[in-house]
Design a protein around this nucleic acid. Structure first.
Lengths: 206, 206
DNA sequence: TGTACATCAGTGAACGCGCGTTCACTGATGTAC
DNA sequence: TGTACATCAGTGAACGCGCGTTCACTGATGTAC
């Protein structure tokens, strides 16, 4: 892309010296690096000093962007939950059909993406939904909203078993979330997932 | 209880000087104190030195009983899972009836106890099922076995919806476990639990 | 456009801390004869 | 039953470490005139 005005030029130049002095987007860089560290070693092992050093900045610089270490950890948790929501949205976009089969496929894809995300990013998943980051206020609920919409869609098509729609989203979410947790921590064998999904299908669908 | 032989006398006396030199049961004391500390502050905050000090023993004494700090943490996790299994067994014992209603009540009690245990001991629950203590080998599965037995009992009475028995235990466990996790971390409101249980009943029972 | 100045976003040294773990030791306990 | 000895289960000092956080500072950036 060719810069077409001074602001753009300046911005690009600014990016190119991001590591020189004023960093450009140190806040986001710290979050990304912290997420990377957590992904590798779990949230127990993370150190603000280490994250700052890896980003190429002194530890004290972080305090211009985060009140304390916990604030950085919270930002990572938000980021992870955002990524999960994004992955789910992308999965939905891949199944645009308006027929019943597509509606079912979307519903199943949501669960599948959730489970896959947890398995591929166990430490980040555990961080976002674990002991740290107890969620006092409602989290960005893109993922949950998508589930509710998918269930409503199924229900409006008469594909949900009669009489179970109310509160079903909590049961489904709990179930997939629990399976994710138990799989990550080694208590459920991933080989049983197919069977699990088959049972869920029978339980929910008409 | 009156001591009736020399061994008993010796044992009782031994107990009475537990804090003097040889401790008596330092291993169990350390596990109990560690569990207490985790219950209060979460597994992040625990320190082997602090646990030892609270028990009234030098930190190095712990190394006669545990290879390292992680071994102590693992022992706590086992202990917690054992407690959960015990609580479930006790709940079953309170509902001894042989009729259908009792069988259903037992099944529901298992889920209720699991959920209650998690809510009453959030930090211990998170420790046992969380990032620490990744379970490489199968855990003592008293709790899971009880669930399987309860489902088999329901099924043999024809109370489980036809065609869903196979693999159902994993779905139920995942669901209750997930609800426990999400409740502890503040993502599900305990006020919705009744609705949740009503849906579960409709999903599972004939 | 240039200049004076406020603000922003870094630096690096230092503080103070508690931690896990090791080590040489010693007193208590158990055992063989 | 007494005694000699091995083993067990403690002690306490020390090592070395990395951590979160603060502070006075300074150079870069943005802005008002």
């Amino acid at each position: 892309m060719i810069p077409n005005n001074l602001n753009t030029v300046k911005f690009l130049w600014h990016n190119s010296v991001m590591t020189t002095y004023h960093h450009g987007d140190l806040q986001q860089s710290l979050v990304s690096q912290a997420a990377h560290d957590i992904a590798l070693g779990g949230s127990q092992s993370i150190s603000l000093r280490h994250v700052a050093t890896e980003v190429g900045v002194s530890a004290s610089a972080a305090y211009h962007h985060f009140a304390d270490k916990q604030a950085l950890l919270d930002a990572v948790a938000s980021d992870v939950i955002g990524q999960l929501g994004l992955a789910m949205a992308q999965a939905l976009a891949r199944i645009p059909g308006d027929d019943n089969a597509s509606a079912i496929a979307r519903f199943e894809a949501l669960g599948q993406v959730y489970l896959t995300f947890a398995q591929e990013n166990p430490n980040l998943f555990l961080h976002a939904f674990g002991p740290n980051c107890t969620h006092d206020q409602p989290v960005d609920s893109a993922a949950f909203d998508a589930l509710v919409a998918a269930l409503d869609d199924l229900d409006s098509r008469g594909l949900v078993r009669p009489g179970i729609r109310v509160g079903l989203e909590n049961v489904v979410w709990s179930s997939v979330h629990g399976l994710s947790m138990l799989t990550i921590t080694g208590l459920v064998d991933p080989a049983t997932h197919a069977e699990y999904l088959a049972v869920m299908r029978k339980l929910v669908l008409a």
